[in-house]
């Protein structure tokens, strides 16, 4: 661990401490925005852990998230809440492994297509089960407060950042960077590329399921069309790419402005949210291919070049 590592860790800890104080401000509105931001930070950062190095666009977030909410919905009366989060994480990881095993051995397109419909698939199956058993939705009535949810999400975010940092330093992270740069080279230097990708895909799967489990009490009433809303997957992709998926902290830079923008648009023009999402996708592809982070990097390079000129 170098000096900059320690400095970054201390700075992150201070930032985390400040974030943790938000519920004490007493403003319900800002707390609710804080929960949304924390949720998308967790989802987008874990998404970028997989999609950043591999360049595979995963659209399965909503599926894992929905599975997580259902774990809480079905089990909160019999099991303690913390264990449900763990169970959701395990189920999410197993589901991700299955999806990964079926598709990641092949080209990336199959993976995108498969994840695109995964939420809809799980939703159809659960709806079918519910129709058979005659129940409609689930009530999740717990005594967990909004502040409690916020703190749990914040701890999960910390865990995700630490995981990402550790993966970046591990053999797996190194292998993935090579795969992302050139898969042929990776395979020739003895990396099991399919296995590495499947292992890594289990991280966002598990994290998204845990996020769903934590957020279920906030919804109070859950039903398939709510828990598996496909919009969530797209929002996560947008936010992560807007910030920049190449860096660990990149998605965070996209999450905060996009959440605020989304909140103001969906409260003022509820009909236009789809249009906004589309325009955001187009802006990213044409104007910000590497996200805000890429923009910052360019700026930094330019100023540095100018300073070097000034010295010479």
């Amino acid at each position: 661990m170098t000096g900059t590592d320690i400095r970054n860790l201390i700075l992150s800890a201070i930032a985390l401490g400040i974030c943790a104080l938000l519920p004490l401000s007493g403003s319900g509105y800002w707390l609710s925005i804080g929960v949304t931001i924390a949720m998308f930070t967790v989802l987008a950062t874990s998404w970028a852990l997989f999609s950043g190095p591999t360049h595979y666009i995963s659209l399965a977030t909503a599926a894992f998230f929905g599975v997580g909410t259902y774990v809480t919905g079905l089990g909160f009366e019999t099991l303690p809440f913390w264990s449900l989060i763990g169970i959701a994480g395990v189920i999410g990881a197993v589901l991700a492994a299955l999806v990964g095993l079926a598709t990641l051995r092949l080209s990336g397109v199959y993976f995108v297509i498969f994840t695109l419909g995964l939420a809809e698939l799980v939703r159809q199956v659960i709806t079918w089960f519910q129709n058979k058993s005659g129940q409609k939705g689930l009530y999740v009535l717990t005594d967990i407060s909004e502040a409690g949810i916020y703190w749990m999400l914040l701890s999960l975010a910390t865990a995700v950042f630490l995981t990402g940092w550790l993966i970046g330093r591990s053999r797996l992270g190194f292998a993935l960077r090579i795969i992302g740069d050139d898969e042929t080279v990776a395979v020739h230097s003895g990396i099991n590329s399919a296995l590495s990708k499947v292992l890594l895909f289990m991280v966002p799967g598990s994290v998204a399921a845990m996020t769903g489990a934590i957020l279920a009490p906030r919804y109070v009433y859950i039903e398939p069309s709510l828990a598996f809303a496909p919009m969530l997957s797209f929002q996560v992709v947008i936010m992560a790419l807007l910030g920049g998926a190449g860096r660990l902290w990149g998605p965070l830079v996209g999450v905060i402005p996009f959440t605020l923008l989304w909140e103001s648009i969906s409260s003022n023009f509820p009909q236009q949210t789809t249009l906004l999402l589309g325009v955001a996708f187009l802006i990213i592809v044409y104007a910000l291919p590497r996200g805000f982070v890429g923009l910052l990097d360019d700026l930094r390079h330019r100023t540095r070049a100018r300073m070097a000129e000034g010295v010479a």
Binding site: F234, T274, L275, L277, F281, V285, P289
Partner: peptide, 25 residues
């Protein structure tokens, strides 16, 4: 080829959302 795939997926996704938004309105 991979980069084109990623880019075109994102661009046509954007297009599809814009079209849905327009048709909705």
């Amino acid at each position: 080829r991979g980069q084109l795939e990623t880019d075109s997926i994102l661009a046509t996704f954007g297009l599809s959302f814009v079209m849905v938004g327009l048709m909705l309105s």
